[in-house]
């Protein structure tokens, strides 16, 4: 994606140019930060599960006559640390991408 032209100092300008950020960088930075926050909130809201993500959650039950404890599975998603770490990495990559290929402010001719 070609970067939008950033403001450069005019040759005749006596003052150094004000730093500005291209709109796509701001958008991507926001998206990265939002993704990280969203992933963290989902992980936290679904129980801070510190193991692997689960698609089916084991539920323990007891047979009243034999007193055997057995497991049934409930179909629901519980995000684990793999989900959290994956999401945070994806968010960080998106956020960091906005710093790539960024030109520093050009100095005016003397």
């Amino acid at each position: 994606m070609p970067s939008a032209p950033e403001s450069t100092p005019s040759a005749d300008s006596p003052l150094p140019p004000e730093k500005t950020i291209a709109a796509w960088r701001i958008l991507l930075r926001g998206a990265g930060a939002f993704l990280m926050l969203y992933i963290f909130c989902v992980w936290a809201a679904k129980g801070y599960h510190q193991g692997w993500s689960q698609n089916q959650v084991p539920v323990k039950q007891v047979d009243p006559i034999t007193e055997i404890e057995f497991v049934t599975y409930e179909k629901r998603f519980v995000p684990g640390l793999d989900y959290l770490v994956g999401g945070l990495i994806a968010g960080t990559v998106i956020f960091s991408a906005t710093f790539l290929g960024r030109r520093g402010p050009k100095t005016g001719r003397t």
Partner: peptide, 20 residues
């Protein structure tokens, strides 16, 4: 009644893998 199951546990990096 479908109660019978064998549970297996393997220790793993993040947490023990427990299944039936």
């Amino acid at each position: 009644k479908g109660v019978n199951a064998i549970q297996f546990t393997l220790d793993s990096v993040l947490e023990p893998i427990v299944g039936t």
